[in-house]
Write a protein that binds this DNA or RNA. Structure first.
Lengths: 131, 131
DNA sequence: CCAATATAATTAACATGTTAACAGTATGGA
DNA sequence: TCCATACTGTTAACATGTTAATTATATTGG
């Protein structure tokens, strides 16, 4: 519950900004992942953006239609769908990133840089408690 | 992202157990809230269980049909819908709670009791960064 | 080479998340 | 009293979350 509430509290600061840019949380995660990594197959995008495969399948359609990403079959393994960021996606990335960084910096300032670091360490350690 | 991943990692330990008992995360949160608080109106349940009003409206129907909760209009303020746990809900609570406590204890043991405490403190402080 | 098996993505079905609009009920002030 | 306003819960519409089944393609063992 604490994790859920904290996440909700944090995202409440980002959501209005993302909404102004016309994307939701999940779409922004996909765009960011593709912007950082270049081309990835759908499974890897799903993993890195923490989105389930069926959700991603649906999102690919709308993101492609909006020209934010591009899709292509992998020639070596025709099961794989390669995804990459498209020009409009890069533009979006350039517009959103500064706002995102500004909001993060403001939260970090209010919460304390060292406490943010402590928190992230604990969270990442918790995530690695997988099995 | 760290918050999202950490929550997903934690819940992956609880989900199979809840599934065996025939409830999902959200239903379990509602049952727990009502079990602890007695009768509450829908708005308060939604707040405490971190569920949006429209989702709760839908859940009330299925939870009532399954005999897990009971609903009644508030006589003093006929807008309000009072919710309370029903006998079958109490039974479920009694069956699930030990399993839940066991899983939490195991995670706490592996992660470290003091680190759990630190983490919860940081998360709660983060949640209070609301405005 | 082929059949069994595994993997990548999609589809289906149902639940919840999310925002906006709506209906019914309370409440406070002209 | 009555009206404007606020509040509670519901409905609607669309997106994502979740699990299971399915399709297409690869891979592996015999």
């Amino acid at each position: 519950m604490s994790l859920l509430r904290a996440r909700e509290a944090v995202m409440s600061h980002f959501r209005p900004m993302l909404d102004r840019h016309g994307v939701n949380e999940q779409q922004w995660r996909v765009i960011r992942v593709l912007g950082e990594a270049g081309a990835l197959d759908a499974t890897q995008v799903a993993e890195r953006a923490n989105i389930l495969a069926p959700s991603l399948t649906r999102m690919i359609k709308t993101l492609t239609e909006r020209g934010l990403i591009e899709r292509a079959r992998d020639a070596d393994d025709r099961r794989r769908l390669l995804l990459a960021i498209a020009p409009a996606g890069r533009d979006l990335l350039r517009r959103v990133s500064p706002d995102s960084a500004r909001i993060f910096a403001e939260l970090e300032g209010r919460f304390g840089k060292d406490r943010v670091e402590d928190l992230m360490d604990l969270l990442d350690a918790l995530s690695r408690l997988k099995a």
